[in-house]
Design a binder for these strands. Structure first.
Lengths: 336, 336
DNA sequence: CTGAAAGCGCTAACAT
DNA sequence: ATGTTAGCGCTTTCAG
């Protein structure tokens, strides 16, 4: 009923467990006859080595923990997909944790993963997180840690981030090249590095082209709820923005919707640019110009970096920081 | 460096490992003094019980495996979110596998999970899967199995499905009530039960209202690629469809886009209805009427059912089949 | 070529 | 109230 063990095989075949163990792994010192005998018996009785026992011996479970802030989200699900593919191809299992943008849950996830004695952890922090004592705990427990996207600046560890600065810079410069000059920035809370880097890219592009950096053109607006509140206000400005550079595709989509129903033509009067290149960019009307973040690649790169660290292949001391290049994808929401 | 063990504590305190073990769990037969001594020492030295050892003893690892066909997908990521929440609240960890709609990967995922000796498995099969010998393997290994959404009809086990029939029936009846009479059905491959159930709901609604069931109004069309091929053909029909009932929101969104650019007014000339209620339904123009599948709830229900089975709380013999009710969500793409 | 014994970290039955 | 022993399933010296 329960699984058959090495001992069972040994008993049945009048051999010692050690011989059976060796026979199963084709140890050279075992006679062909014995090997065949053992392997045939194992096959017939569907013997499966007990992973748990192995894990206890080696104190390794070939498992990577991953903490995602919000899985119902194009970007993060893409990253997870990349992580999974890379992990699987290297023989690692994935323990999935979901902070749901909640600090307490994030802390609990970390505890769970440390407790499970995973070989390494891939994490992106929640929007709420302000302390990082729990992440430090990971490091203190000698567990490899790689942050992706939403990195925690307080912890000195490997990370993989999108080149937010360049992504924003290039997008804004493109908007300028099409004749936009009053470009609004809809960002995220400045406590997140990604928000700051994008703002800097945005501002530097304006500076380079001698456009003014106006305070009223820069707002925190990273959810549909905020969009409904903030965007109508900005459309009231005189002169109104002639372009919106948005922190994500969803906000950009709402931005188009709100602007259209306020009577503005897109892209003729107002250009809108998103960030991520999720599937919504193809179903809005017009389709949405956006910055591709290559989430899948980020996942693969992060997983690979972590695995290399675990296996001692990434020998570089100090911390490694990988940058994922972005690509501006021009669709229909920006003027030509 | 490595973790401290019970034995280490015992040695340091001149006690036996068993006493330390008991002291840690407040066994009544241990003196208060010893308990305090041990617990203080453990605290100071950051003792963490070795889960792996426990798992070997009990042959249980409190882990549930989940196999998702495609995580970059609103519905499935929602389900995963529900599964995760329920599992976490019951103290189970989640081993995440991703078949990516690929049969081979699905088989491998099953092997990985059996190998990891999970307590139970939640699975939704890939579109490609035609054989189910691997799922049978799960059952043969005495591992609890619950299918969700894309169930495998060949395996006799618990399942949680969306009420596709009623969802389709109600949606189509609504379309009829608004005056549509030439309603097209864009479905999935008939090998999937969910596709058949919806088609039956669709057809029964037509029958009830004495509308003809036309072969040319029923096509397989469940991806953007197919949409671009199939929908223009259907718009050529004379008379053209005055409504499309689509298998998912994405196809519905493309359907709107294609119909609009062919010159049709939505919803005045053509009504469009999707299925899922994903976030794209709020950013299309017009917004998309759809059938809410309640993925989060499905995830919670499936996980709960599995956990009850694992813990012997679901005593009902035979198989349990839970139905998730749908809700028609009327937005802007259907006439009033 | 094969076997005996020890040990990974923990617990529980059985002493004392 | 505490200690001894055995064992979960496997591997790996060390000894034949």
């Amino acid at each position: 009923m329960g699984q058959i063990t090495l001992k069972d095989i040994a008993q049945a075949l009048n051999l010692s467990p050690s011989t059976v163990s060796r026979a199963m792994k084709n140890h050279p010192a075992i006679s062909e006859d014995t090997k065949k005998l053992v392997q045939k018996y194992a096959e017939q009785h569907k013997y499966k080595p007990n992973t748990l026992a192995m894990q206890l011996r080696t104190n390794r479970n070939n498992t990577i923990g991953v903490i995602v802030p919000e899985i119902v989200h194009y970007f993060f699900s893409t990253v997870l997909s990349g992580i999974q593919e890379e992990a699987e191809s290297e023989g690692y299992k994935l323990l999935f944790c979901h902070s749901q943008e909640d600090y307490e849950r994030e802390v609990k996830s970390v505890e769970t993963l440390i407790d499970a004695r995973v070989c390494g952890i891939l994490a992106s922090q929640s929007k709420e997180t302000q302390q990082y004592h729990h992440f430090q705990e990971i490091v203190d427990n000698n567990i490899r840690l790689v942050f992706f996207d939403r990195i925690c600046t307080g912890i000195n560890t490997d990370k993989v981030v999108v080149d937010d600065y360049a992504g924003a810079f290039n997008a804004v410069e493109y908007l300028i090249s099409t004749g936009c000059s009053r470009i609004a920035f809809l960002g995220s809370h400045p406590s997140m590095p990604i928000a700051n880097n994008r703002r800097m890219g945005y501002e530097d592009a304006l500076r380079k082209h001698k456009l003014p950096i106006l305070k009223e053109m820069n707002r925190v607006c990273d959810t549909p709820e905020l969009a409904r509140e903030v965007i109508p206000e900005m459309l009231q400005l005189n002169p109104h923005p002639d372009a919106f550079f948005c922190v994500n595709d969803e906000v950009a989509a709402y931005c188009m919707q709100i602007s259209k129903s306020a009577g503005f033509k897109i892209p003729e009067e107002i250009s809108v640019c998103g960030f991520t290149n999720s599937y919504i960019t193809d179903v809005t009307d017009p389709t949405l110009t956006t910055v591709d973040q290559h989430g899948f690649e980020m996942g693969k790169v992060a997983a690979r970096l972590l695995i290399n660290r675990i296996e001692g292949k990434e020998t570089k001391p100090g911390i490694v920081s990988r940058l994922i290049k972005t690509d501006l994808v021009i669709k229909g929401s920006t003027r030509k």
